[in-house]
Amino acid sequence: MEKFNRLTGVAAPLPIVNVDTDMIIPKDYLKTIKRTGLGVGLFAEMRYLDDGAENPDFVLNKPAYRNAQILVVGDNFGCGSSREHAPWALLDFGIRCVISTSFADIFYNNCFKNGILPITVSQEDLDKLMDDAERGANATVSVDLETLEIRGPDGGVIAFEIDDFKRHCMLNGLDDIGLTMEKAPAIASFEERNAQSRPWA
């Protein structure tokens, strides 16, 4: 998993509450277990018209936001089914950070396991960030996981909190497999001792 230390990028505003995982990646795209290639289906029902053409009114289709790396979204983001394809689709599109007032628990934890930083802020701070994100190409926001700060385009600073263990994993690029591999020497040592003490096993 790619490390997350600091991220500076365009923030796209999506002021919709209760965006569920089916809106993030519709069920039609769930036929694969690969983590790549799902970006094309991200927000498909809002992003494309009935004839398959791009919806010019959807935020991520606008020139200023096509390369957005940060999403500023409404309350209760990622609710609904527990599909891990949702963070896969966000990451494949290029989104590395999502900021909201609240997230569904399973989606929130899936983000950390896939290298996306979900940040919870107060409604007041979200309103400020949403206003910053409305600036289009000038909506550059910096997220610093080491200092736990978000800096807006005007230099304003918003502090946020992250669980220490999750922060450690993100800073060091550790998913569940990576965490296990950190223990590889201890596991190898145990296996060697076990083979000597129980040669019949």
Rank of each mutant, 00 (worst) to 15 (best):
R66H: 01
G156L: 01
G136V: 05
D144H: 02
T8R: 15
G9Q: 01
G173P: 09
M1G: 03
E182Q: 14
N114T: 13
Q196K: 14
N67T: 15
A133P: 04
N114A: 05
I99R: 05
W88P: 10
I16T: 07
A201C: 07
L49Q: 14
F107M: 02
R151H: 01
A11N: 08
E134H: 11
Q123L: 03
F190L: 11
D105H: 05
D105W: 02
I187L: 12
I177E: 05
A137T: 10
I24V: 15
P26D: 09
E191K: 13
G80D: 07
A68C: 11
K128G: 04
R193H: 03
N138G: 11
R6H: 06
R198D: 12
N18F: 08
D125L: 01
I150H: 03
N67A: 15
P185V: 03
F93G: 10
E45A: 03
C111T: 03
N138C: 04
G136K: 06
L174P: 05
Q196N: 12
K3D: 11
R96D: 12
K31V: 09
K183M: 10
Y108H: 13
L90E: 04
V59P: 08
G74H: 10
R135E: 09
R83C: 06
T101M: 02
V40H: 09
L117S: 15
F112Y: 15
D57Q: 13
D144S: 11
K3W: 01
N194L: 14
W88L: 10
G41P: 04
D50E: 15
P15I: 02
I162H: 02
D20S: 05
